[in-house]
């Protein structure tokens, strides 16, 4: 078939880019509101900030239909297994945003009850700082994730058996291996 037989224009590109573009433009978050940050997450989805502009307004109630888990709030020792179970139920590809300092590092609650960083339980892609992060901060985290999806691998399983080697800039991705829970000493 020669090109002159075509009656309309066409674009060429790589299939990978197409997949990445599609994934980036419709990241559906799971509703995983825990504490204060959940209110700001809801505010981000509501009229003033309107996450629908980025194809993200559908907060999926079922983890099976969600691509992104926004861990919004402090994760207690009691909640951590539940969080892990919800994460395990999500389909690949999936991403995690740790929203707020409590989820990222335990924040001001450095005590027996709070898991000091949700990255002990699930692998985190983007950390959003703030207590609570304003909707703008959350949106910045989401853009960062979009960029990560746009430039990332299409076929890679999260938390695979072989940890990726250190890249040239000395940045070693941390692959969480075990859930560390229980009574602190």
């Amino acid at each position: 078939m020669a090109l002159e037989d075509l009656h309309h224009n066409f674009l060429t590109g790589r299939l990978e880019d197409m997949v990445r573009w599609a994934r980036r433009a419709s990241v559906w978050p799971a509703t995983f509101g825990l504490a204060c940050c959940a209110i700001e997450m809801m505010a981000a989805g509501a009229a003033d900030y309107d996450l629908a502009r980025y194809g993200m307004e559908v907060f999926r109630n079922s983890p099976r239909q969600a691509d992104l888990m926004i861990v919004a709030g402090r994760v207690s020792q009691k909640m951590a297994p539940v969080l892990r179970q919800v994460y395990d139920q999500m389909m690949e590809p999936k991403w995690v945003i740790s929203m707020g300092v409590c989820a990222s590092s335990g924040g001001m609650f450095n005590n027996y009850a709070i898991v000091q960083g949700v990255d002990q339980v699930v692998p985190v892609d983007v950390y959003a700082p703030g207590c609570p992060p304003s909707p703008e901060t959350l949106m910045h985290a989401i853009f960062t994730l979009h960029e990560k999806i746009r430039t990332g691998e299409v076929l890679q399983r999260r938390g695979g058996a072989t940890p990726p080697a250190a890249s040239s800039d000395g940045w070693t991705p941390v692959v969480p291996v075990a859930v560390r829970l229980g009574t602190p000493t």
């Binding site: 590092s105 450095n110 005590n111 027996y112």
Partner: peptide
């Protein structure tokens, strides 16, 4: 007599 459970930062 139960410690706060602080993890060193």
């Amino acid at each position: 007599d139960y410690a706060v459970g602080r993890v060193p930062v």
